[in-house]
Amino acid sequence: MLGWQLINRKAIAVSLGLLMLMVATNVEAGVFGWLKRTEIQWSPEIRGVLFNHGEPVTNREVKRRLYYEGKERYDSVTTDANGHFYFPRKTLKVRRVLFDVSVALELYVVDSPNAGDEDIIFDVSFLNDLNYQSLDLVASDIRCELTAEAKVDELKNLEIPGDSAPNIRSKCTFAHANIALYSDEEIEQQRLELERIIDNQEGF
């Protein structure tokens, strides 16, 4: 009998040990999973054309600045004979965190409007990453005019319609604006709908 009691105790101890190991593994995965590195999109692929008064700007340096919560990276290209410039997609491996962080992508034109100046022509920033299909579409075909006034465009969230997405401040127009950006009419409809909701809430 004593032998069987020892075997039962060992079996219980082993079972408890396995149970505690499973619980600890699940807790570790839930808590420490945030500390694992994950890859984010830092910049989509960018294809653009640079103009000045409608004429292509040739042999001009265009600089890209990427920012992620204290990390910065710069690279640059030179426009070709037709004013075209290109930047490849960039990703960054970061540790997942429980709070939001700031991510930014900016394009500057060097020596504009004067020698030694840097004129920002495209600027987008948001939280955690810039992995949006609408941003990919916008960046795939942009036309930037140095003499234009900077304007703000609102990206659509094509992955989750109606959810938030970054705004773009730029001197550019976009070939896929009808798909990727909210039109003035759509923004006005959103404003009116929000006013209607507020009015209804105040009526209670």
Rank of each mutant, 00 (worst) to 15 (best):
L2N: 11
G3K: 14
W4A: 12
Q5L: 15
I7R: 14
S15D: 07
L16E: 05
L18E: 08
L19H: 00
M22E: 03
A24T: 14
T25C: 10
E28A: 13
R37M: 06
R37S: 15
Q41Y: 06
W42G: 02
L50D: 02
H53P: 00
G54H: 01
G54L: 01
R64M: 15
Y67A: 07
Y68D: 07
Y68W: 15
E69F: 07
E69W: 07
K71R: 08
V77F: 02
T79R: 00
V94P: 10
L98S: 11
D100S: 12
V101T: 15
V101L: 09
L107N: 03
L107W: 02
V110Q: 03
S112H: 04
P113E: 04
E118W: 00
E118N: 09
I120R: 15
I121H: 01
I121N: 03
S134K: 03
A139R: 05
I142C: 10
E145Y: 10
T147G: 05
A148R: 02
K151D: 11
L155M: 11
I160F: 14
I160E: 15
P161E: 11
P161L: 11
D163M: 08
D163K: 01
A165D: 00
I168H: 00
I168Y: 05
I168L: 07
H176V: 03
N178G: 08
A180I: 12
S183I: 08
E185T: 14
E188T: 12
Q190T: 05
Q190I: 07
R191F: 09
R191E: 08
I197N: 04
I197F: 00
I197Q: 12
N200T: 07
G203R: 10
F204S: 10
